Amino acid sequence: MTVRAQIVRFALVGAVNTATYYVLYLLLLALGLPYVAAHVVAFLLAMTGSFFLNCRFTYRTRPTWRKFLLFPLTNAANFVITTSGVWLLVDVAGFSSRWAPLLAAAAAVPVTFLVSRTIMLRPETPRAGGSLDRAVAAK
């Protein structure tokens, strides 16, 4: 698969991930969570779904425990950029807490793609953790 195809697929997964995040964020806000707590919880839940979508759809690689445990690194920069962006947009610039996460997310996309691609396509070592597929199938 070409890098261009991966970028397109990454963008599609990103759109699904963003929609998932945003729906969860609004739901958590409606349940009374402060906006930063709603952001963190929604982000973590959406990131888990993003891992599996990126494995299967974007990079066509098997999900492994190693990749799953490293995947949060792909979102570390995203998390810092979006969390800082949400705070700046809401508390400093006066934007609505409903729309700020969407604006903040756009700045983090290129960094997230590069780190994600590196982790997902890195060759596995023979002793690397087992496949998540086997772990799920064993249940």
Rank of each mutant, 00 (worst) to 15 (best):
T58Q: 01
C55M: 03
Y25N: 05
G49R: 06
L88S: 08
F57L: 03
A38D: 09
R134S: 14
R60I: 01
L73Y: 05
T83L: 15
I7C: 08
W87R: 09
M120L: 11
K67D: 01
L53I: 00
R117H: 11
P63D: 01
T48H: 02
A30C: 00
R62L: 08
T83C: 06
L27R: 10
A106S: 09
L70D: 11
A108T: 04
A107F: 12
T112S: 09
A37C: 06
G94C: 02
V36W: 08
T118F: 08
V115A: 09
F10Q: 08
A135K: 14
N75A: 11
S84N: 08
P110V: 05
A46C: 01
A138P: 05
A30N: 09
Y25K: 04
M120C: 02
L28R: 09
S116V: 03
A128H: 09
V8D: 13
V86I: 15
A104R: 05
R127A: 12
E124C: 00
N17K: 11
G94Y: 04
L12V: 15
N78Q: 14
D91E: 15
P110D: 06
L121D: 08
V92I: 13
Y21N: 12
W99N: 05
S50K: 00
P72G: 01
F68V: 05
V92L: 09
V80M: 11
L69K: 04
T61C: 02
G49P: 05
V23I: 15
L89R: 06
S131G: 09
I119C: 03
T58V: 02
L31Y: 11
L132Q: 08
L26S: 06
H39K: 13
A104H: 04
N54L: 00
I119T: 10
V16A: 11
F43E: 04
G94N: 01
T82G: 00
L114D: 03
P34W: 08
S96Y: 03
A138H: 13
Y35L: 03
A42E: 04
L26Q: 15
V16N: 00
A19P: 04
R134N: 09
L27P: 03
A105Y: 07
V115Q: 01
A135M: 13
F52M: 00
T64Y: 03
V92P: 04
V111I: 14
N75L: 03
L44V: 12
V111N: 10
T20D: 00
R4L: 15
G14N: 10
D133R: 09
K67N: 05
T125A: 12
T20I: 12
Y59Q: 00
G130L: 09
G49E: 05
S97T: 08
T74S: 13
W99H: 06
N54H: 07
A108R: 03
I119S: 06
T48G: 03
A107Q: 07
G129V: 01
C55E: 10
